[in-house]
């Protein structure tokens, strides 16, 4: 290899003016190993690049693992999302139901629906009861009066019927 060409390429390489093709050419030259002695110091650098290029992901099971992950997660993801979401809704419902149940209990115990004693003094209570009974008996009295009136009609009707029978 023409050492002028190598020097020219190297100069471009160090100043970062070499094209990709020129850099590839340079690598090929160093790979072939026929470089002039004065450039021997640069050779390990290019050798280093070449060796690093060969480095690969040295794991036979790697592809399999990736393919497996690609296959499964989407489906499992959907189902677990569904379960997760419905669990969230269910948990929300449980909280609301529990809260309403407790509040209802609380309200019930704070104002009980049964009759409450109205009077503490027995005398007053007696008077009140008497009043109530009197009211009822009064109503009964008036009802009796009305019934008497109705009776009057009945008696009159019966007498008329009797008279009619005797005439006939």
């Amino acid at each position: 290899m023409d050492s002028n060409r190598i020097n020219e390429l190297l100069k471009k390489y160090w100043s970062c003016e070499a094209s990709l093709e020129e850099e590839a050419e340079l690598r090929e030259i160093f790979k072939a190993g026929n470089v002039p002695d004065e450039l021997k110091e640069t050779a390990p650098l290019f050798q280093y690049f070449e060796e690093n290029k060969k480095k690969s992901l040295n794991d036979m099971s790697f592809e399999g693992r990736v393919m497996e992950k690609i296959h499964s997660p989407a489906k499992r993801g959907h189902i677990s999302k569904l379960v997760y979401n419905s669990m969230r809704i269910a948990a929300g419902l449980v909280v609301v139901l529990a809260a309403t149940w407790f509040i209802r209990n609380e309200i019930r115990s704070s104002n009980p629906p049964e009759v409450v004693d109205t009077y503490d003094d027995p005398k007053v209570a007696f008077e009140e009861t008497k009043k109530a009974l009197m009211m009822i008996s009064k109503s009964f009295g008036t009802a009796e009066e009305h019934a008497k009136k109705i009776n009057l009609f009945n008696e009159a009707q019966e007498e008329i019927q009797k008279k009619k029978e005797t005439k006939l």
Binding site: N52, K55, S56, L57, F62, E63, M67, H71
Partner: peptide, 18 residues
């Protein structure tokens, strides 16, 4: 599809790895 992924994208793995 999975096959073309494996045959065309997967080979880039070494570059990505390095």
């Amino acid at each position: 599809n999975l096959e073309s992924f494996q045959s065309r994208v997967m080979p880039a793995k070494n570059k990505l790895f390095r």
